[in-house]
Simulated scan of single mutants.
Amino acid sequence: MTAPASSPSRPVGRRTVVIAVAVVAALLLGAALVVVISRGDPDAERTTPQGDQPTTAPASDTTEGTVPGLRFLPEDVPDDGSRAPLTGLPVADPRTLDRPLLAIKVDNLDVPGETARPQTGLAFADVVVEEVVEGGITRFVLLMHSTDPPPVGPIRSARTTDVHLLPAFGTSLFAYSGGNPGVLAAVRAAPAILDRGGESPPAYVRVPDRSAPHDLYLRTEVVWGDPGVATPPPPLSDFRPRGAPVSGGEPTGGVAIDHGGMASSPIRWEWQPTVRRWVRYQRESVHVDGEGYAVGPRNVVVAFTDYRPSPADPRSPEAVTVGAGEAWILIDGKVVTGRWERPTEDSPFSLLDAAGRPVRLSAGRTWIELVEPAAATLLPAA
């Protein structure tokens, strides 16, 4: 695989833009959810779901500082020894660790005049993988396991990138809105993926306050209610206790990413030391989800990879996630320059430093950016 050139990083100025975003959760959880999808059938049954699912989130997080105007999903809960495999964090209810991984495809179109923001569920995912689709647009694969999110969305279609990516995390349920015939055939043929795309109500619902195609949402409890042979995920890392020293690495203020293309939305991750999180900016505004939580994971992994034309549609890029490539692993205000490795499709990702030693992520949530060489630039440390 092609690695990015080892030229010095361009300095990029740091700007902090704080925005207040109206919370869509009230609309999702309080308003009637209507017009249900059933594999694209225009005569699909209409329904209003009963008994909205409560959000499982602890009431406080005493280890955090504050960033004015921002709030983050709390993480500290009583520690009874149960740890989530994708975060290394204690969980409020250990029984959640027995359920399978649920991978959800979420919209991220964000251009002047049309946007999928604010999405719901971003702050609740244990891991989020961001991949490029047509025109430089990105979509998210939310890996849900240890928390109970509100209805997640907007849901969008699958790509062949997902078919090759998801087996790295075990046998998972996969929720998405559809795809072309080649993609659908690949999803259904994948032994490590249980197809839960385009299901009938009450799993998928359309909300009245958003326009199609940005109006389709998923009720995760319905999908988890039919787990089939899907399994809990393997551990993502041998997690470091939060605040433990990072082995190696250089201080950095974060990373800027620009995928190019007419519909690309520039991305920036900035280190916020008072909360020990990487805060995400998109189009120069803090990325806040529909529950009002700022996107602020503990780890950001920039995995440099090639994109090739998808066999299902040559106009659609497919990320190459089997093999190896350079990686920037952002942890606790530092960047560890190393590699990602995944020798086979059913292998997990390994993150290694320049000497070939495993890199331990910080306990907490992780975002993985699938980035082409030269599309990312490190920011100078403050």
Rank of each mutant, 00 (worst) to 15 (best):
E45G: 02
R240L: 15
R315K: 07
T2R: 13
A354Q: 13
F169Y: 13
T344P: 10
P227E: 07
V187D: 15
I137S: 01
G296R: 11
R277C: 06
D52S: 11
A92H: 01
Y293F: 03
V129H: 00
T220M: 07
F349R: 03
V223W: 11
G261P: 00
L361I: 03
R298M: 01
S146A: 09
G261T: 00
F124L: 12
P317I: 05
V152L: 11
P314V: 03
P112N: 12
N180R: 01
R308N: 09
S264H: 15
S310V: 06
N299K: 01
T160C: 08
R360H: 15
P309K: 09
G30W: 10
S60R: 07
Q119P: 07
P118W: 09
S247K: 13
E270N: 10
S82I: 07
I37K: 13
P112M: 14
L109E: 11
V322N: 10
L33C: 14
D195Q: 11
A25H: 14
V18W: 14
E250N: 12
A263P: 09
R283N: 06
E199D: 04
R339H: 04
L352Y: 03
G153H: 13
V67L: 05
A125Y: 05
A312N: 04
W367N: 02
R188P: 11
A363Q: 09
Q272R: 07
V17I: 08
D306Y: 03
L352Q: 05
V335Y: 09
V187G: 07
P314K: 03
P68Q: 08
V255C: 02
V279E: 00
L378C: 05
S347E: 07
G254M: 10
G261F: 03
V21F: 14
D162G: 14
S60H: 07
E318Y: 10
V359N: 10
V222Q: 03
R242A: 15
E199G: 05
R280L: 03
S316G: 06
G81S: 11
A190Q: 09
P245S: 12
E318Q: 15
T160W: 02
R156I: 02
G243D: 14
V127L: 02
D346S: 02
A327G: 13
R210F: 13
V300C: 06
T120M: 03
P8K: 04
A5T: 11
L370I: 03
V301P: 05
A374K: 01
D195S: 11
F174G: 03
R315S: 06
R159I: 00
I267H: 15
P149R: 02
K105C: 05
P54M: 02
G170N: 06
S177G: 15
A355H: 08
L27D: 12
P266V: 00
T138F: 06
G333I: 03
S247W: 12
V128G: 00
R99T: 01
W278D: 00
L29G: 07
V286R: 15
G198Y: 01
P151T: 02
L109V: 15
G69V: 00
S211K: 08
P266N: 05
P266C: 05
L165Q: 05
A26T: 08
H259R: 00
V12T: 07
D76M: 08
M262Q: 04
R15H: 14
V371F: 02
G153M: 03
T220A: 14
R219H: 08
D289E: 12
V21K: 10
T220C: 11
T96S: 09
